[in-house]
Amino acid sequence: MKIIELNAADCTTTKVFTALLKDAIQALPGHGTSIPAFVDSMIWGTGVSDLVPPYTIRVVGRLDREVGRFARELSDALEAARTDRRTRKGEDVAVVLETGRR
């Protein structure tokens, strides 16, 4: 599994964080910045990013409160979507966003 370290220490807003994350997943132009947009591209594979699973994105660095909350919510949403995909399609997509909270 690929492990990608995303240094978010200098991310003072979710806008900056999502730009780094889009770069990490090799998002194509037009990729959104919402949690559902990342879930769609990272778990459901809607063709708006070039990074192919399996992979783990490890968020490192002290996170701003707003950025940390967004990263944790995204991590939880990705985990829930993996479960949903296993239930619906009988397959798993090994994508993890580690936020350092666990």
Rank of each mutant, 00 (worst) to 15 (best):
L21T: 03
V16A: 15
K2G: 03
E98V: 02
K15W: 10
D50C: 07
T12G: 12
R85L: 11
F38G: 07
P36A: 12
E98Y: 02
D40F: 10
V96Y: 05
T14G: 10
R101N: 09
E91M: 14
T46G: 07
A8C: 13
D40P: 08
G100E: 02
N7H: 13
T87P: 03
G47C: 06
T18A: 06
T13M: 07
L28P: 00
I25A: 01
A77H: 00
R85A: 06
S49C: 15
Q26P: 04
L6W: 12
V39M: 12
T14A: 11
D10Y: 05
R58G: 00
E66V: 14
R62T: 05
F38H: 09
D64V: 02
K89D: 13
T18C: 10
P53K: 01
D10M: 11
F17Y: 12
D23M: 14
R102P: 12
A37Y: 14
D76Q: 10
G30K: 12
L21W: 02
Q26V: 04
T99F: 01
L51P: 00
V67C: 07
R88M: 02
R101G: 04
P29K: 12
D84I: 03
A8R: 02
R88L: 07
V67S: 06
A24D: 04
Y55S: 00
V48Q: 11
L21P: 10
V59P: 04
D40G: 15
R58E: 09
T18R: 10
L6Q: 05
R69A: 15
Y55Q: 00
I4P: 11
V96Q: 04
A77C: 00
I57G: 04
K89N: 11
W44Y: 13
S34E: 15
R58F: 03
F38I: 07
E79L: 13
L51C: 00
L74M: 08
G45Q: 15
V60R: 00
G90Y: 05
P53R: 01
A27H: 06
L51Y: 00
